[in-house]
Structure formats: C-alpha cells, structure tokens
Design a binder for these strands. Structure first.
Length: 725
RNA sequence: GCGCGGUUAGCUCAGUUGGUAGAGCGCGUCAUUGACGUUGACGAUGUCGGGGGUUCAAAUCCCUCACCGCGCACCA
C-alpha cells in the first residue's frame, strides 16, 4: 500500500500537484487525446470572467458545472474542448481603473489622456487575467489553456471589425440622432439593459406654466419644463378637446416657451391631470410623441453634466438644485396647485450608479426590427426562432418565457460608448466621406472617437474564439458548441446577443443548450458582496477545505436557475466526505489488496477484469446495484441533473459502500475461507474503482489521487479513464 | 400593468412520466478507539401555503385566493 494512505487526506498538498500533472500531460487539449480525430467533439466555451478582479462563488459554481460536463464527456470518449478566456468588460474595467487612479493620484482620465489611461488599463488587465487564470486552475478546471482567448486581443478585434462591417453593409447598423441613456457620472451612453431601476420617494407637482395657460400639468421633474414644446392630451378627453391645435406663448421661470396643444392616444387621461407637458429632448416618449406631431423644436435644456443650459435664474444649475428653484418660483407665482408624495423608479447606471439623464445624441445603433437583406427576417426573429423551435433549449425551461418576454420588448440596441477602453468603432471619416471596417491607407482620415458596447464582442464569443472570420479547422470542427453555462442574470445581456450575432454571422446557433445557474447567497439569503463583508472566497475555501469539498457543496442541492445559500458548515460536510472516501480507499487497499492478489497467478494481471463467476450470489447483487447507480448517474448528467447525480454517488459511497458493504466485509476478510476472502477483496476493489470513476467529474482531485494507487489503474490518469457503463 | 418563480421536517432544500412523503444539518437514545481527528445504529418532528376541481390515486395536473421573491414595462 501507498504510504500516503497512512495519513489523513491533505487537499492542500495534493490538489496543486495533481493539476500540474494534468496540465503537463496536455490532455486538456482535445487534439492530444488518444485517437483524437476519431472522437466526436463536445464543446463548451467558458463564459469569460470580467478582467476586473477576482473570481467569486458564482464563478466557482459555473466553472464546476462546466468542468463536470467536460470531464464526463472526456471520459466517455469525446474530443472534449473547454475553451477558457477573459472579458475586457469595457465600462466596468475602465471605471474601476479610473476610480483607483482618482483615489491614489487624484487624477482624472482627462488629466492622463487617452494613451496613458489605456496603458494603465492594459497593465491592470494583464495582472487581473493572470489572477483569474491562477484561480481557475485552483478550482480544478480542465480547460484547454493553449486556446485561451481574450475579448479584446488582436484576433477578436478582427472578428469585431469584420462583423461590424457586415452588419453595416446589411443596413442593420446605423448612426442616428436619438434619445439615449446618458450616464453623467460615467460620461457615456449605456444600453437599456445596463439600467438599474431604484425605487425612491418623489413629489408629484401639479401646476400651470402661467396664470393664463388653460391646462394644468403634473410632473416629478419641474426643472425639465423649461424645455417643453407642447402639451399632449388624450384625443377623447372632453375636458381638453377645445384646446387641441391651439398654440400659446408663455414665460416659465424666466424661459420663454411656445406650447402647442396636441392630441395623442399614448396619454393616459386618468394620470395626473390627464395632460402631459412634452419635453422631447429629455424624454424618450416625449420625443416619440413630438415626432408624431411634427414638432421640430427639440432643444436641450440639460447638458452632459446634468446641468441646466437655459438663461435666467436656472442658468448652469444642477438639475436637482434647479428643481427646488422652479418649485419656489411656482409657489411665489401661485401656480402650484398640488404637491403629492409618490414613489418613482429612478433609472441609474449599473456600473457607476449615476442617475440616467435622457439626452438626444448622435450614436451607433443596431436595428432589431428591420428585415435583413437576403434573409427575409429581422434580428429579433433570428433571436426568437431557435428557442421557439427547440434548436436551443434553455434549462430550466421556464426561462424561455422570460427570454421571449424580453425580446418582444426589445428596442434598437445602442452600441457606441464614450469611453476609451474597448474596441473602437471601426469607422473613419474624411469630410463627408465614411469608411467602415478597415482603416483607409490615405492621409486625412479620422477614426470615430467612440468604442463599442462590451457585449458586442461578447456576442461573438462562441466563434471568434475559434478563429472566425478565418475558415479555420477549429471553427469547422467545434462550432456550433454544445452547452453554455452561466448565471440567469446575464441571459439578456449575453445569451440573446450571442444568438443574434451567431445567427447573423454564421446562419446557425451558437450552442444547443443553455444551462442557467442561480446566484450563490450567504446563509441568511443575502447576496454575497464586499460591502456587506459576507463574501466567501472560493480560493480561501479551496485552501481551508479543499476544492473537491467546495465543488460538492456548490453542486449538491443546487437546481438550475435557483438561488442557493452557502455556508462554511455545508462545505465542511463535504470535507468530511472526502475524508470518508480516503478512508474507504485506505481500508480497501490495506485489507483487500493482499487477499485479492491470491487470484493473481500466471499472466493474470490487475488490469484484466476478474471473472464474476467467483462472486457469491449476494456479491452479484451488490455489483448489479452499482450498475443501477451507474446508469442513473449517467442519465442524470445527460439530462443536466448534476445536483442529483452528485448526491446519488455521495449517498452510495458513504451509506452503501462504507456503511454496509465494508462493514459486512470485515468478518469475511478476517475469516479463513481463502476464496471468499479473495472474491470479496476483488469486489471491494471493483466497487471502489467504479465509485472513483463516477465521482471523478465532481471531485477530480481526490479521486485522481486515489486512482493513482489502484492496482486496477488502466490509464495514465483517471481524467482520461473510461466512464463506466 | 404584463410575465416568471417560490410556499414540503426546527433550519437549508430535493422530490425526473401522478402510485404509501425524502436528504443534509440540527435534536434524542444507544453503541464505538475504529478503515474514519471527520464513526455507526435506531428514533422523533410533516393537515406538502388556504380553498375547490380532475382521477381508482395529487406535493405532482387544472382553477382560485393569500403571502414572499424576481424580471420587464410604466413612472407626464
């Protein structure tokens, strides 16, 4: 017996060594697997973690499920490719580095300049990527590092520029002057999906523009009323019918206004006074209504810094200050009729927390409702169809409805950002001339200043990683991929965009199954966060309890799409299980191997399966029982019930193999019947060998470590040993 | 407003096509120095959120109500 079994299992001393051996073997790369070309591919693209810091429990969960599927398929004889990478996460990364520089040096990005800031970000990202790679290894991920990718490296930039041009040429990307979500804090536009709504108390003011104005209006933002150009009422509203079409000149808080009364069915006659003051420059809906009524005046009264741009008493004030001034003015002029408490959903920017200010701006957009030339479908339809038809299956299934619901509400996607870090818009201008795709060689061309929404490049992930737009062997062999595994939080951000981009670029799906994970919460059900101080660092867990224990704790009881509570207590329980497994191995290898060797004579070796005929009827039953477990576990993994598969093997190993079979074996092994002893010894070895194989995808390290000492070892690593049938 | 999910043991949660309610932790009793620092055996606790329906049979399917959570939209 191996000396190592004399001591308790030491995950910290084992896991790093084993990972290094696996990596050195090259077997994470499917090209190096035996008979690689004859194997059917099985492919998972790792959702690239943001290069903003370190991995958290959510990453650990995702990586574990992916690794389970990859290891399982690899053992089953597939050319298992798991391609790792990181995401440059444009806004998130830039704002993080900017914040750090502001804190350390008191400098803004404008103090540093574009070039210097980008240099700083590159350095930060390089370090961050290294940290993430190291952590991914600690978590046991058997991914192919030789194919590692980054959403902002040269190859991915080529893919981004190529696709941008393709979409531009198809008329799906356009530059348009429209209301955008402007983040005054981050000084950039953001997409509708990057908005987080926060409920806050607010006041609803009801008033008239002036004494002789015939209609009262209600608003929570009186300061914007200096930008009003019209009052809209419902066409059927008897109260206001006589005013429709009339125009009025008035002065509101020192600002002259020209107001037209229009009738629009969008107006809810039951809300407020049933009349809306239209501020086209600072409200999406008002802009649309103004368009319908051919109101050309869309002057802005608020700038990018959320300050007033009008003359008079509001000049240069912050919007919040201006609001108080306007309310005071309304009171002085006796125009205020009502002041009510209300709650309101404030739009804030996901990354910076800045309060969104709708502003009209010239930006780049992807049009989702336009028919694609030659395809006869819109991008929206391209996103819907594969999920509707079942070509792409979402697990759990009920998220398909959420997905449809989101797409049906989808509007054009604003893809340009006023930040410096990220793929720069591949468009060049010279006077009135425009070139898209590649930089023109001649002098005098200036590239668009803006960069692309980070999700534009993420959307290409399943194929940009395989070499697209070049016609590579990898692309031909490994795409479409099989499964995509990520948290339900980014279903819209990412899954939908991947389907959109892949359908458009390759006319196929990016993957066949989407497995959504829930969120990992603390023992009280709160989200894990730095500010709450309730974070559980997966790397600390690996050190304290072992990666294997951490993986089991993440998997067992964790159903797809459902949040799960995590505690150190739970992880400790699976450390106990690792110890149990270790002791099972110790028992079998100490007490059984010597006896089993009785059967080893002549040329018969450990590697050749023993004759089952030696076993007693009861022992045949025990083998059959494990056959059942084997096929159940296999079916569970096939059908993505990894939580159930893990629990079944756990239960079998502890409460069948250890508690019952080993217990009943003790007297047999201590007895005098040599042949009974030998067959029982063989039985135990076979059961242990089988349990290790079944458990390997879940607890890769300890199973590999024990396997290396098994006389039944038939492959260089358990990682590439055969999955039992 | 539209949509989705949840409600099962003290706690955290499973329960795949309808077929006598499960696990882990915790709790109680007993055993155990051992393959096991981290053990075993046995045990108690459930009107499966309320009500109605379909069925020979419902935690599971249908309707309805309540509460909790989430997404989207509105937010003048």
């Amino acid at each position: 017996m191996d000396e190592k079994f004399l001591k308790p299992y030491d995950p910290e001393g084992t896991e790093g060594r084993i990972y290094a051996e696996w990596e050195k073997s090259g077997l994470f790369n499917p090209d190096n697997l035996p008979d690689s070309t004859k194997r059917k591919p099985f492919v998972i693209m790792m959702p690239p973690p943001n290069a903003t810091g370190i991995l958290h429990m959510g990453h650990a969960l995702g990586l574990t499920i992916q690794d389970i599927l990859i290891r399982y398929k690899r053992m089953q004889g597939f050319a298992a490719l798991w391609l790792p990478g990181t995401d440059h996460a444009a806004i998130a990364t830039q704002s993080k580095v900017e914040k750090q520089i502001k804190k350390d040096e008191g400098l803004s990005r404008h103090d540093l300049g574009r070039e210097e800031l980008l240099k700083r970000i590159d350095a930060f990202v390089a370090e961050s990527r290294q940290t993430i790679q190291k952590q991914t290894r600690i978590l046991g991920a058997s991914c192919d590092w030789s194919r590692e990718a980054f959403t902002f490296d040269e190859k991915r930039n080529k893919a981004v520029n190529t696709l941008f041009k393709k979409m531009y040429d198809a008329g799906l990307i356009y530059r348009g002057h429209r209301i955008v979500n402007w983040d005054p804090k981050g000084q950039t536009t953001i997409s509708d999906d990057e908005i987080v709504y926060e409920e806050r108390a607010a006041k609803l003011y009801t008033f008239r523009y002036s004494k002789n104005f015939p209609i009262s209006i209600a608003t929570t933002r009186p300061e914007t009323k200096v930008g009003d150009v019209a009052v809209a009422v419902h066409p059927d509203d008897a109260r206001y019918k006589e005013f429709v079409g009339k125009e009025y000149d008035t002065v509101f808080c020192d600002v002259p206004l020209h107001i037209k009364i229009v009738a629009d069915k969008e107006v809810d006659p039951a809300f407020g006074t049933g009349a809306v003051g239209l501020t086209p420059a600072h409200s999406q809906i008002d802009w649309e209504i103004a368009d319908r009524h051919l109101l050309s005046n869309k002057n802005t009264v608020i700038n990018e810094y959320a300050k007033m741009t009008v003359a008079g008493r509001l000049a240069d004030m912050k919007t919040t200050e201006a609001r108080d001034i306007v309310v005071a003015w309304l009171k002085d002029e006796e125009l205020l009729e009502k002041e009510e408490d209300t709650t309101q959903n404030i739009a804030t920017a996901e990354r910076t927390g800045g309060i969104i200010e709708p502003l009209p701006k010239l930006q780049w957009w992807i049009e989702v409702n336009k028919e694609i030339p030659g395809r006869g479908k819109t991008l929206k339809e391209l996103m819907l169809e594969p999920v509707r038809s079942g070509q792409i299956k979402i697990i759990p299934e009920h998220f398909e409805k959420t997905y449809f619901n989101w797409i049906e509400n989808l509007r054009d996607w604003c893809i340009s950002r006023q930040i410096w870090y990220g793929h720069r818009i591949p468009v060049w201008y010279r006077g009135e001339e425009v070139v898209v795709g590649e930089a023109p060689k001649e002098e005098g061309w200036v590239q668009d200043e803006d960069s692309l929404d980070t999700w534009f490049s993420s959307g290409l992930w399943t194929f940009s990683t395989l070499g697209w737009p070049d016609a590579t062997d990898d692309l031909a062999r490994f795409h479409p991929t099989d499964v995509m595994i990520h948290a339900y939080e980014i279903l819209f951000f990412w899954t939908a965009r991947m389907i959109l981009m892949t359908e458009f670029a390759l006319n196929t799906v990016p993957f066949h199954t989407v497995y959504l994970t829930g969120i990992i919460r603390d023992e009280k059900g709160r989200k894990l966060s730095k500010s709450l101080g309730n974070g559980i660092d997966p790397i600390d867990i690996a050190k304290k309890f072992g990666t294997d224990a951490g993986r089991m704790a993440l998997i067992i009881g964790n159903t797809p799409g459902t949040d799960m509570r995590m505690s150190e207590e739970k992880i400790k329980g699976y450390k106990h299980f690792a110890n149990k497994l270790w002791n099972i191995a110790r028992f079998v290898l100490t007490n059984a191997v010597a006896d089993a060797s009785v059967l080893k004579n002549g040329n018969k070796t450990w590697a050749s399966a023993p004759e089952r005929a030696h076993f007693s009827a009861h022992e045949h039953e025990l083998l059959a029982e494990l056959d059942t477990i084997t096929s159940d576990v296999t079916k569970d993994i096939e059908e993505f019930r990894v939580y159930m598969a893990a629990e079944k093997i756990y239960h079998y190993a502890w409460h069948e193999l250890a508690d019952k079979i080993i217990e009943e074996s003790k007297p047999i092994l201590a007895g005098t019947d040599v042949s009974a002893r030998a067959s029982r010894a063989w039985l135990l070895l076979i059961l242990l060998d089988r349990v290790l194989r079944l458990l390997h995808p879940f607890m890769p390290f300890i199973t590999e470590e024990i396997y290396q000492s098994l006389p039944t070892k038939d492959a260089e690593f358990l990682m590439v040993a055969k999955w039992p049938v």
